[in-house]
Design a protein around this nucleic acid. Structure first.
Lengths: 144, 144
DNA sequence: ACTTGACTTAGAGTTTACTCTAAGTAATAG
DNA sequence: CTATTACTTAGAGTAAACTCTAAGTCAAGT
């Protein structure tokens, strides 16, 4: 049931990007489909795979500009494998750092959520400031 | 050593936001410092605390607009505690979902990084496609 | 014939969150 | 006296990543 060639409309549906965006990406050389006899774009299974990967790249916070760099390396063949790997490693590191930071921020937010609960139920003193509460919680790490 | 009142310049230094940004935030009612006799802004320890928390909110992906909503609730006093809590819970959920998705994307990227390694060292066949390799890895989850 | 979907170039519009400039005023420190 | 720092309004500029419109062409399907 998998078709060899997809029109831009079909491909758009399949991958969840508008035709506008696909042409925009093409302008940016991120994905360049072949053309048929009437100059119409057609997308192949390779394009499906590549776009899937591209979305994974985007999903880790890689910018268009970085993806362009990756695409350029790709066009230069296997000799750029190390460069591509390095680029991905940087992106991975950045994403992990970003996750770690978000988690640190989430900890504070989570404590604030708890704090609202405790205020609600008068578990903590009416005058207890969140900052004070937060300090206590940080010191209590790992305990009951 | 902690000063009671900070000028916008001192506060800017302390919190790492430009004076432009601070005035912009003030315009948006995100943080509204008091004024001295000469109509100059001064920031107190409370402002320092609030901005710290605001940055935690930002750091979990909360938009300006959502923070505005939170600020409005805050201005209405304790009666809005539940609303604020709910808002934070939504933000938390979204952030955790976002982290989970990024991690899924990172898995693919990590496999690609490994794949470059193995290509480099001829551990996998020259003609092995990444998609194929990725499938294998996914099926091997949990195994050696 | 007509609708549909594709094509082109070129450029305008959108969103978020700043970032900066202009132009003029005012208080404080050296 | 002058440099620094702050104040105001109003609006322009920036960056990223789209998103859409205009205006006209073209080929295939019903």
């Amino acid at each position: 049931m998998k078709q060899e060639k997809l029109t831009i409309g079909q491909f758009s549906e399949l991958v969840g990007l508008s035709t506008y965006t696909l042409r925009y990406y093409e302008n940016e050389h991120l994905i360049v489909p072949k053309r048929d006899d009437n100059n119409r774009r057609f997308y192949t299974q390779d394009d499906v795979k590549w776009l899937g990967f591209l979305l994974h790249l985007k999903g880790t916070g890689m910018t268009m500009s970085e993806i362009k760099t990756y695409v350029q390396f790709r066009a230069q063949g296997d000799s750029t494998n190390r460069k591509r790997q390095k680029l991905l490693e940087e992106v991975k590191k950045r994403a992990l750092d970003q996750i770690a930071e978000t988690k640190r921020n989430l900890e504070v937010i989570s404590h604030k959520i708890d704090w609202y609960d405790k205020k609600e139920n008068a578990v903590i003193d009416e005058d207890e400031s969140f900052e004070n509460y937060l300090e206590k919680m940080k010191n209590n790490k790992g305990e009951a």
